[in-house]
């Protein structure tokens, strides 16, 4: 993906910025500009809290180009507390400890780099909620 494409997506990707529907109040991620519930225009930006729980998950052993150096890693479908489901990598986690319903929180991490000399792509991942992780 070219640098300009990454740049257009970065606010949404750095801090989980979506939209909220003025008409019915539904929160949307990723931003779509049209409400999925009532089809009204949704233009108001909304920054998600980043709090959610694991809905389903899998482990990737054969990674696509750009992600080879980080295998194995886990991908999960996260149910955000505001409602939407989002697909993201899990981080700071051991495979054995993951379960459906595990409380997680959003963190901004390195997703990958464009080779040795290209840009570094940052974006959201999810990890076990820190306050509960140490108990």
């Amino acid at each position: 993906m070219e640098v300009s494409r990454h740049w257009r997506l970065q606010t949404q990707r750095y801090s989980l910025v979506g939209e909220t529907c003025d008409t019915c109040g539904v929160k949307l991620f990723p931003p779509r500009d049209v409400c999925l519930e009532c089809e009204a225009p949704a233009k108001e930006l909304y920054t998600f809290t980043g709090v959610g729980e694991i809905f389903s998950y899998t482990t990737i052993y054969e990674a696509p180009a750009g992600f080879e150096h980080t295998t194995p890693y886990m991908i999960a479908l996260i149910k955000l507390e505001e409602g939407p489901l989002v697909t993201a990598q899990l981080t700071d986690v051991d495979q054995e400890e993951v379960y459906v319903g595990m409380p997680v929180e959003m963190v901004t991490r390195k997703l990958r780099t464009e080779g040795e000399e290209g840009v570094i792509i940052y974006g959201y991942k999810f990890r076990p909620a820190v306050e509960t992780a140490v108990q």
Partner: peptide
């Protein structure tokens, strides 16, 4: 730091 962390990600948190 883990594989996906650097001064930028750590500063953000």
């Amino acid at each position: 730091n883990g594989l996906d962390e650097d001064v930028v990600t750590m500063s953000i948190e």
